[in-house]
């Protein structure tokens, strides 16, 4: 059997490792200073896809990422690890999309890749932190969903057995194919880049990136068409613009407060009840805890 696997991967600011270096003078996080990385659980998702391909040679992995032009990096990173191709979903009209509008756009892109057997995403992105895009994409595609997956245990012709990691322990479930899976961070980590693939794909570019290159790639690309990373816009997806961006998003951000993490001077306290209570109130009011 050969399977077609669509992996959803997002480029995110590295919100986990906010050191003192990414802090502004007022103690809030400078989000722009955070490096852009491959969303951690999406790497776990990619690894699950690669394992299917290991087991069923000839299977195909297609990575979809929606984001600004620089998110093409996610596709290259995936190619270096064994994905076969990828598409960058990018358009100004996507800006301001909440998870409903995001999953609408992503589901249209996945539909263009029919017939597929698996849609594998991370459980949660570390910026929006909602864990909603996976299940919402599944619903839009009318697929069964298996969330919090830790491992794909077995694949038969048109069914898959998956281990889920949930609060009480683990659950083993079996689903028919095609299926949407969201992968938990406790799943095996992603393999490293392969030198051979880095050599093969290091010149892979989107059209927009090519326009910014000073070097002329025309000749190289005519011999190696696989280096072309396609961009899909609203028009390519045949999407209803009303269902995208702000107009397609039922949720609105009314207000954003920055959490004040750093404090300038060290505060000395005693073990007295009133000191300990003051500290807990202080941390709660600054949203450091609670």
């Amino acid at each position: 059997m050969k399977y077609r696997i669509v992996v959803l991967a997002k480029q995110v600011p590295d919100t986990r490792n906010v050191g003192k270096d990414a802090m502004k003078a007022d103690g809030t996080v400078n989000r722009a200073a955070l490096p852009a990385i491959f969303n951690p659980e999406d790497l776990n998702a990619l690894e699950q896809a690669l394992r299917i391909k290991d087991r069923f040679p000839g299977s195909e992995i297609i990575v979809l990422t929606m984001g600004p032009f620089r998110a093409a990096e996610i596709i290259r990173e995936s190619l270096y690890r064994g994905a076969d191709r990828g598409y960058l979903i990018t358009d100004r009209k996507f800006a301001g999309s909440d998870t409903l509008a995001t999953s609408y756009a992503i589901s249209l892109a996945v539909k263009k890749l029919e017939p597929y057997h698996f849609v594998i995403s991370g459980r949660q992105a570390i910026d929006g932190d909602t864990a909603q895009v996976g299940p919402q994409t599944a619903e839009k595609l009318h697929l069964p969903q298996v969330t919090y997956a830790e491992d794909i245990l077995d694949i038969e012709k048109d069914s898959v057995t998956i281990k889920r990691r949930i609060e009480m322990g683990v659950e083993i479930v079996k689903s028919t194919l095609p299926v949407a899976i969201t992968v938990h961070g406790s799943a095996p980590s992603c393999r490293a880049r392969l030198a051979k693939l880095v050599m093969k794909y290091k010149h892979a570019r989107t059209i927009t990136e090519l326009q910014e290159e000073t070097k002329d790639y025309t000749d190289l690309y005519s011999h190696r068409p696989y280096l072309q990373i396609d961009e899909w816009t609203v028009a390519d997806l045949n999407a209803d613009a009303e269902m995208l961006g702000l107009s397609g998003s039922p949720t609105k951000v009314k207000k954003i407060e920055n959490v004040v993490l750093a404090h300038k001077e060290s505060t000395r306290l005693t073990a007295d009840d009133k000191d300990v209570e003051w500290l807990m109130q202080e941390l709660i009011s600054r949203h450091v805890i609670g």
Partner: peptide, 15 residues
């Protein structure tokens, strides 16, 4: 909270 707990957002669904 969002952004790994670095911001607190107030979200509404008006319509």
């Amino acid at each position: 909270p969002a952004f790994g707990g670095n911001i607190i957002a107030t979200i509404i669904n008006p319509d």
